[in-house]
Design a protein around this nucleic acid. Structure first.
Lengths: 210, 210
DNA sequence: TTGTTAAATTAACAATGTTAAGTATATTGA
DNA sequence: TCAATATACTTAACATTGTTAATTTAACAA
């Protein structure tokens, strides 16, 4: 109702209002199933108003992901305080999985959805975005473990190691999220699967058993 | 043009015609981006004709997946001839990954897409569908390795082991498919990542190094 | 008071999945 | 042989969607 020039602060506030409403709906019913009109109604605006703040639906999704990557990084921050590097590494995987499994639709948006790559112009900006923080945390921990000379002798590439750990945990989580409802697999308990994956990673990567 | 009663065979033929056209388009441009009219035009029919053979778009997608699960199982069939069970297991992971990475959009449909679960009535029918074949193959190989007493002493659950291997390979592949374009990860070569994952799985699961 | 500008809305569009209604042809039954 | 029926298909039509254009409303500046 009030068409008066808004401060940057007010604009930002409305932006996050949109983001929060959209996330709520996206997460509970899937991106495709949610309409712009619905998001707008939720916050008491008309659908077209969203376009004053976001270029299109995809841009809303992208904004959600950006803030959520930050949230994940924050959730993992405490874990980074653990003293022993190997323990820290294990706990990080555990924390990551907990995030994934307790916010499956969330996780789907962030790590499983087909994303049209950002336009190249943004690629440099993105270099140090929140998005990379969680990965950076993992890489840091892996570096620590490497520095402590705990990895097998033949493992020299910190990125490669980090990506393998990520793939292992992500594999368990994403399979659970997508396929858990398929009864033709006699699924073991998810916590057992996660535990075995962690054990396999540890045994496969570290110099000797924990 | 020719409205004469069709034999069951002819009907089946048209069904696969639709499936093949749809898959082609889905795989190259994504499910959401492809319209029913487009699929129809591709095979020279009107859009509504598709509905004479499939309930809706989702049903077309499901039919595609069904035939493709079978194709995957077939692609893996040769590998099952390898004599040594451990080698067979490794080759199976490799074959699976090759399928995933050379048909990424395909793979996305099969193992990464949010699927509305089949209606419960079909659950029993599904029990022995093509869909489970690839998993069954994996489980068989794992059983063989288990029978050969090659797994670690504390690993007793064949399903759990199979699911962990699956998760590992799937993790590498799905991360590659979804995130490879994200430059904030300094991605190692995909074949290196796959190789390390396989090595980790082997070292983590088997009684002793290969 | 009167422009001007920003924020919002309503109207309008083209495209989509899907359903309903219509058309043509081959088989059937008399 | 000829109506009747059923089948394969098409065209029309609909409601819904993301999005753009045109319009309204209200605050500030002159």
């Amino acid at each position: 109702m009030p068409p008066k020039p808004k401060t940057e602060n007010e604009r930002q506030q409305l932006r996050t209002l949109i983001i929060d409403a959209a996330r709520d709906l996206f997460v509970s019913r899937g991106v495709e199933a949610v309409t712009m009109r619905e998001i707008a109604k939720r916050i008491g605006y008309s659908a077209t108003s969203i376009y004053l703040h976001f270029a299109d639906k995809e841009a809303v999704l992208r904004a959600i992901c950006d803030t959520d990557f930050l949230a994940l990084a924050n959730a993992l921050k405490d874990i980074m305080q653990i003293a022993d590097p190997v323990e820290r590494m294990i706990a990080l995987g555990q924390g990551y999985a907990e995030f994934a499994l307790s916010h499956p639709n969330h996780y789907r948006l962030m790590f499983m959805a087909a994303r049209t790559p950002y336009d190249p112009a943004q690629l440099t900006l993105q270099q140090h975005s929140a998005e990379q923080d969680a990965y950076f945390q993992l890489k840091t921990v892996v570096s620590n473990v490497y520095a402590a000379a705990r990895f097998r002798y033949d493992l020299q590439d910190v990125d490669l190691i980090a990506q393998t750990i990520w793939a292992g945990v992500h594999g368990v989580c994403s399979l659970q999220i997508t396929m858990a409802c398929d009864k033709w697999v006699n699924w073991s308990d998810i916590s057992e699967r996660l535990e075995l994956m962690q054990a396999v990673l540890i045994r496969g990567l570290l110099r000797e058993a924990l």
